[in-house]
Design a protein around this nucleic acid. Structure first.
Length: 410
RNA sequence: GCCGGGGUAGGGUAGCGGUUAUCCUGUAGCCCUGUGGAGGCUACGAUUCGAGUUCGAUUCUCGGUCCCGGCCCCA
């Protein structure tokens, strides 16, 4: 074969596309009912949007290019930054909260592996304008419910970075960032070495090491004992109470972190089984990006769902709906087109365009899994009727087109 | 960027120095000009690419490429 698709991209055949659209629409249905509205941003953006958010280091992972005006551009690797850019550009005067969602493809120049492609789809939500635990809870619960709606029982881990940031606040900003990155990577030996290197106070060291290993139901109380009655723990407590009210299952996990400074409070990740090394299907949290992009001091919370990974484990199949193959003879082909015109107001219709004989048309109807075939033959037309055949049962009856429409749309 | 395992018709496979490159499935047509899913017959269709070793490479060696899994990374 001479032409092939670019590495890490995929073709979606009709069957694949049908499955994907079905799941996509289920997810859309859920977010819409939570009051979120869909937006679309450009497929490519200026390079600095992403370097500003994530640092120069990400350039190696980007599909970037210079356009004919010598501007540095890139295909978007994610959608949080574009959405925040959109907000800063044209939505700052709107009353808050602003509840947005998107479903778009993203591009990253990475080594493909299971659940990781160079072109992939993200379904994401951004809730702009509230720093309250209520906003965090709504977003987290929504992520959970979306996965539930497509039959995925995710393992949800939550944390509030405010607690660890409070603990680290005595250190220099640079040191704090470095520590957050190490915690995020779960590189605990590296963390120990670094704490040694900067000669961190031994009390802080012990507290930190114990804190990031706290998980489970009593974790908050233990953290309170460890660090004291700080406001961040109370916020965390509020979040838990709200999540209980939403009726979702979660695991408190002080080990969840983010390597970037603009994450402020709540963070969460959802894992699913059956995905190999890339088992995270959702990641999110509250962040402060708008200020970084030159807007006001507006807090946000959001998440991204890895749609391709969802499809990997999701077993939902589209519902079967009725479709019709019209079987005609040479002498009735023109009449068949008229019948097709009528029926196409209601259901998908196939008409032979291969000049096939009667039997071959029937065979094709079977192949495409049409629920019904309709025989437009001389005998039928003489009576002003058509034969409707149920392809599953094989039963057939002579009916008027009106009766057929009633039957098919029932 | 790194480490493994792989690429033979559209899909699934056999062959592992010399074959008309095997078989299944598929697609098209016919048997069968108003009834599909079965059967029979016929046709279509492949050695990932490039170099090397050899009289001769699908088979051995090296490199590229793509696929699969993992590391790194994961905004």
């Amino acid at each position: 074969m001479k032409l092939s698709k670019p590495r890490g991209t995929r073709d979606f055949l009709p069957e694949d596309t049908k499955r994907r659209r079905n799941v996509e629409n289920i997810l859309r249905g859920v977010v819409k009912n939570w009051g979120f509205e869909e937006i679309i941003t450009p497929t490519f953006e200026t390079l600095d949007l992403f370097t500003l958010k994530s640092g120069e280091g990400i350039i190696g992972e980007l599909y970037n290019f210079t356009d004919k005006g010598n501007r540095d551009m890139t295909l978007r690797p994610e959608l949080t930054a574009p959405v925040m850019r959109m907000y800063v550009n044209e939505m700052q005067a709107r009353q808050r909260p602003i509840k947005l969602f998107y479903f778009e493809n993203c591009f990253r120049y990475e080594r493909p592996q299971k659940g990781r492609f160079r072109e992939f789809w993200q379904f994401g939500v951004e809730l702009i304008g509230s720093s309250k635990a209520d906003a965090d809870a709504e977003v987290i619960a929504l992520a959970y419910k979306m996965l539930e709606a497509v039959g995925i029982k995710g393992d949800l881990h939550i944390n509030n970075l405010g607690v660890i940031r409070n603990l680290l606040s005595v250190l220099e900003t640079e040191q704090q960032s470095r520590i957050m990155r190490l915690v995020d990577k779960k590189d605990y030996t590296g963390l120990e070495e670094y704490l040694e290197e900067i000669n961190a106070p031994s009390e802080l060291r012990v507290k930190l090491q114990r804190l990031i290993e706290l998980t489970g139901n009593d974790a908050i109380e233990e953290a309170r004992k460890l660090i004291g009655d700080i406001p961040e723990i109370n916020d965390y407590q509020k979040l838990i109470e709200l999540l209980e009210a939403y009726g979702i299952e979660y695991t408190i996990d002080f080990g969840i972190a983010r390597g970037l400074d603009y994450y402020t409070g709540a963070v969460f990740e959802i894992y699913a089984e059956g995905l190999g090394a890339q088992n995270q299907v959702c990641g999110g949290g509250s962040y402060q990006l708008i200020k970084l992009f030159g807007g006001g001091d507006v807090p946000s919370t959001g998440f991204g769902l890895g749609f391709d990974r969802i499809m990997e484990v999701c077993e939902i199949e589209p519902e079967e709906s009725s479709s019709v193959a019209i079987i005609a003879k040479d002498s009735t082909r023109l009449e068949a087109i008229k019948v097709a015109n009528e029926l196409r107001q209601h259901v998908p219709v196939y008409v032979d365009i291969m000049k096939r004989n009667f039997k071959a048309q029937m065979s094709y109807a079977n192949y495409i899994e049409a629920s019904h075939s309709i025989i437009v033959g001389e005998k039928e037309l003489e009576e002003g009727k058509l034969t409707l055949k149920d392809m599953k049962s094989g039963d057939q009856e002579l009916l008027t087109i009106e009766d057929i429409i009633v039957k098919l749309t029932a």
